[in-house]
Amino acid sequence: MLTQVMPQPQVVEDRDRAAIPPSDAEAESLPMAVQAKNVSMWYGAKRAVDNVTMDIPAKAVTAIIGPSGCGKSTFIRALNRMHELVPHTRVEGTVLLNGENLYSSDVDPAIVRRRVGMVFQKSNPFPTMSIGENVIVGLRLNGVRDRKFLNEHLEKSLRMAALWDEVKDDLHKSGTSLSGGQQQRLCIARALAVEPEVILMDEPCSALDPIATAKIEELIQDLKKHYTIVIVTHNMQQAGRVSDFTAFLYMGRLIEFGATTKIFTNPGQKQTEDYITGRFG
C-alpha cells in the first residue's frame, strides 16, 4: 500500500547480475519494478515526454541515455512525481510501482518519493545539518523518534553507501565539509535510509572525478542486489559499465530499450546507433 508508513521492499530473488549482464530474453522473464505506460509530460504547452512505455526490471540497473533536452530527467521525475514540484507540469499515462498506480488519487506523493528515492546531479546535503542528521532526516520527517532505530539506520545506510569507514568519527561535522564524491554518497545514504524500492539517479557522477565516479559506480553494483536503479547519464561508457539495460530517448520518445550489451554492440535502431557512435548531426 502506498499509504502505509514504512513499506518494505518486495522480496525478489536475489542474484548478482554484476558479472553477467542479462540478455534481452532474460529481461523478459525478470520481475518489473516500475512500469510506465503511455507516459507523456508537458511543461506548460511544451511536450517533453511523448507517449513513453517502458518496463524497468527489478534489482537491475537501467540507464537512460539521450541528447540534452530529450526528456530523460523529466521522465524519471514522473517515476516519483517529483515533477509536481515544478509549476505548470502535467502528466498523462500511468506509472505502476510493483503493480500499484503512483498516480491514483488516494496516493500521497510524499510516500511515493520515499519509495522511489532520488539522487541528483549536484550533491545537495542539507548545509545546516551534520553528516548524521543528513542521513536520518528522512526518517525523522516520517516521525521516527526511536534513537536506537535511528542510529542503526544511520550506520546501515552509510555502510551501504560505502561511506561509513570514512565518516564514522565525524558524524557531527557538517555534510558540506565532505568532498564532492563523499557528499554524493552521503546523498545516496540519505536516500537509502528510508528504505526505498527504487533509486533514481540523475547524472550522479557528472560533477565527480574518475576516482569518485568509480566509487559511485561500484556502489551502484552493490546496491542493485537490493534495489532497482534507474540512472540518467550522458556518459556512454558509464552506461555501458554500470547498467544491465539501456533506454535511448530522443525528442521525448523512447527509441529503443534493451540489454546494455546489445544496445552498445548492435543497436536495433539507426537513431540509437547514430547517437551512441557520435554521428548525431
Binding site: 555501458g240 554492440t265 551512441i276 557512435t277
Partner: peptide
Amino acid sequence: YQPVASDLR
C-alpha cells in the same frame, strides 16, 4: 574514442 556499436565491431 571508446567506440561502440558498429564502430566497435
